[in-house]
């Protein structure tokens, strides 16, 4: 092992000097530095056919490409947002085959033959989906970045209640769930809004739900 003069510890990693480390046992021997590996060959790519907002799309994607990045970077549907890329915020929520998912934690190649609905497929500025209109009316957003995910989730949540899928706040999980603000809050909890529009979002969803039932 090479040792730079006068320093100490290992050539491969973090050189510890000073007595700062109470946790000397925990100090990495070579943690900070990634081991180099042989140069990669061209990364594998595969064809995928997806229906996005009713339109067929044929893509060839790196196997590593997430559904989120396929939408944003390949199809330029940037309404679906990347907030964390790790399933921790919900900004990337889209509806696949009728179900909402985090598009950041799904590979595009896993969606061959699937039907995807994004925020762009729900409505346009000139012709808003009732949920979008309700968000505008109730100011259910501020910076707008979590908003497409909130709206896609909200649309799917109403379907989930209708389909009888239980939630954490059910008093009796065997019973059919009913629409309530508690149900909405629990079911929408996978969509974080740091601007804190929650109270307004719940009102928007309540209004949109009423409209749908009417």
């Amino acid at each position: 092992m090479d040792r730079p003069a006068g320093k100490g510890v290992s050539r491969r990693g973090v050189l510890v000097s000073g007595a700062a480390c109470a946790a000397a046992t925990a100090m990495p021997a070579s943690a900070s530095s990634k081991e180099p590996s042989a140069p990669m060959k061209t990364p594998p790519a595969l064809p995928v056919q997806v229906k996005v907002n009713g339109k067929a799309a044929a893509l060839t994607v790196d196997t590593r490409t997430t559904l989120l990045d396929a939408l944003r970077e390949h199809l330029h549907l940037t309404g679906t947002k990347k907030g964390c890329d790790h399933g921790q915020c919900g900004a990337c929520t889209v509806i696949v085959n009728g179900r909402r998912i985090n598009s950041c934690l799904s590979l595009a190649v896993m969606h061959d033959g699937d039907s995807v609905t994004t925020i762009e497929g729900l409505g346009t500025p000139e012709d808003l989906h009732p949920m979008q209109a309700a968000f505008v009316r109730h100011d259910g957003y501020q910076c707008g970045y979590c908003t497409p995910g909130q709206i896609c989730s909200a649309v799917a949540v109403l379907d989930e209640i209708k389909a009888g899928i239980p939630s954490h706040v059910a008093a009796d999980v065997a019973a059919s769930p009913a629409f309530s603000e508690m149900e909405i809050r629990e079911r929408m909890s996978g969509n974080i809004c740091r601007c804190g529009a929650y109270s307004n979002i719940v009102e928007a969803i309540r209004e949109a739900a009423g409209r749908r039932q009417a």
């Binding site: 990693g13 973090v14 050189l15 000097s17 990634k34 990364p43 990045d69």
Partner: peptide
């Protein structure tokens, strides 16, 4: 060229650090 390539390549950078007391 792509996000996936940039991310993968970033982990191939090898850095040696000398830690000092903080």
């Amino acid at each position: 060229e792509t996000f996936e390539q940039a991310r993968a390549a970033s982990s191939l950078i090898r850095i040696d650090y000398a830690r000092t007391k903080g």
